[in-house]
Amino acid sequence: MSDVIKINDIDSSDCQRFDKWPFSQDFCVTCGLCSSTCPVSGIDNFDPRKLVRMISLGLEEQLVESRWPWICTMCAKCEKVCPMGIDIASLIRGVRSLRDRDKVPGILHKGLTAAMKTGNNLGLPQDDFVFIIEDVAEEIAEEPGFEGFTAPIDKKGANLLTTIHNKLVNTHTEDLKYWWRIFHAAQEDWTVPSDNWEGTNWGLFTGDDEAMKIMTGRIVENMEKLEIKTLLWPE
């Protein structure tokens, strides 16, 4: 991202796609408040003002291929201080959405692909999921005050359906126990679905709205199927 681009060399027809974007990027007065407040300014020469200007100038390819939209955490400090009301975090998510899906960095798109196919980011089969849930529930039942504890799976007509963050059935199974202990003490009538239990929605990070709709729709389907009115979504 260190090449100098001369403004007169920019072909204005390049701007067409970004022209239609609804993030008010062309209102930028280059005041630099966003860059001052941004926690990632300076890393890899990134700063949000540069990114907003590049979008206004139509430098699409450079941005889509760069690491900038991915080292930003879309925390929206920049938006908070922007005097022109530019939706900078949403704009960055928009740039992420233009990246070829097989070039999305890290495990984000791989996890999302697994989720589309299997219902969860890990591709964890249903039997293994049920085994882990029951195993952790048995551990809680051995604790004083939690005798007889069970984790109800697919309980029709329960009061509350909860999703599960994939890391809690992977490397962090101990972290399942806090909510479950609270449910037990509060005598909650709760349940967890055996399928499509994934609580994270990585389309939020990759800019994939279609995947987000599918993941959310599956949770709603589970609620309808199990006749449950309330969802707890701790992710």
Binding site: P39, V40, I43, D44, R67, W70, I71, C72, T73, M74, C75, K77, K80, P105, G106, I107, L108, G111, W202, L204, F205, T206
Partner: peptide, 28 residues
């Protein structure tokens, strides 16, 4: 509250593989 600093783990940063950047960010 509204001016809180991000921890550096937002936007999927824990899964992109850009760990050095994420750790530097978290220094604040």
């Amino acid at each position: 509250t509204m001016n809180q600093l991000c921890c550096g783990g937002g936007g999927g940063a824990l899964t992109t593989g850009y760990n050095d950047e994420r750790i530097l960010y978290g220094g604040r």
